[in-house]
Computed example of a mutant assay.
Amino acid sequence: MTERSTSEKIASAARRLLDREGADAITMRRVAEAVGITAMAVYRHYPNRAGLLNGLADEGFAELTLRLEGLRPSGDVKRRLERVMDVFLDHALERPRMFELMFLKPREGARRFPEDFRAGRSPTANPSAAILREGMEEGVLREDDVWEIVFEMGALLQGLIMLYLGGRMSMSEKEFRKFCRRSFERYMHGICR
């Protein structure tokens, strides 16, 4: 077994802090203490705290992208979009603080709507866009701006997730998932032919 590099140890320590306490708890000093190195040694691997947080968020997006790539949803447009929604829900509920960092914390270099999305630079939005395009081509969905719909659907789900994680919804995870499904169905009703 090979020994992990210092950079890997730093990222791992930062992930643990993120999962336990959230992004605000991550400081170069705390990460260094967890690894057993000096704070200055962390700067050899990450230029600053923002760079470390960006690295963590990028890691979260890579994990979510892998889940989406492994999905291979089948069925009609609605069913395939539901499967994509389930992947987002699983990711968010398993790693809530990572999800918050990825989607809600301002970060330098974070993808922005509409330019990055329209350019295909969002690997987590591209699968939904492809399904929506197919639905429009098949005549199942009304012709509309695919990227605006992707962004709206994401905003609906992310907003519900953050309200749930923030304790603003008094329901179990199972009930919350059902609520998300009903919300999705109402949204789909509005864009279907």
Rank of each mutant, 00 (worst) to 15 (best):
M1S: 04
M1Q: 04
M1K: 09
T2A: 02
T6I: 12
A11P: 00
A11Q: 08
S12L: 07
S12V: 01
S12E: 05
A13L: 06
L18I: 04
R20W: 05
R20I: 05
E21V: 02
G22H: 11
A25I: 06
T27W: 13
R29D: 02
R30A: 06
V31P: 01
A32S: 05
V42R: 02
H45G: 02
Y46L: 03
A50G: 03
G51S: 08
L52P: 02
L52T: 03
L53N: 10
L53K: 13
A57Y: 09
E59F: 07
G60R: 11
E63F: 08
T65Y: 13
G70W: 15
L71K: 08
R72I: 03
R72Y: 11
P73R: 10
P73N: 10
P73G: 04
K78G: 02
K78H: 10
R80H: 05
L89G: 01
D90Y: 14
D90C: 09
D90S: 12
D90A: 12
L93D: 01
R95S: 06
R95L: 10
R97E: 07
F99Y: 13
M102I: 12
L104A: 08
L104M: 12
P106L: 12
P106D: 14
R107W: 07
E108N: 08
E108R: 15
F117C: 07
A119R: 15
G120V: 11
R121L: 15
R121E: 12
R121K: 15
S122H: 15
P123V: 12
A125Q: 14
A125W: 15
S128I: 14
S128Y: 15
A129E: 08
A130G: 04
A130V: 15
A130C: 07
L132F: 14
R133K: 15
G135F: 14
M136D: 01
E137I: 04
E137P: 01
E138T: 03
R142P: 00
E143P: 06
V146F: 06
W147G: 00
V150M: 03
M153P: 01
M153R: 14
G154M: 13
A155S: 13
L156A: 04
L156W: 09
L156Q: 09
L156R: 10
L160P: 00
L163P: 00
Y164N: 02
G166D: 06
G167C: 04
R168D: 00
M169P: 00
M171F: 10
S172W: 12
K178T: 10
F179P: 00
F179H: 09
R182M: 13
F184T: 04
E185K: 12
R186D: 05
Y187A: 06
M188A: 07
H189Q: 09
H189F: 12
C192E: 11
R193V: 11
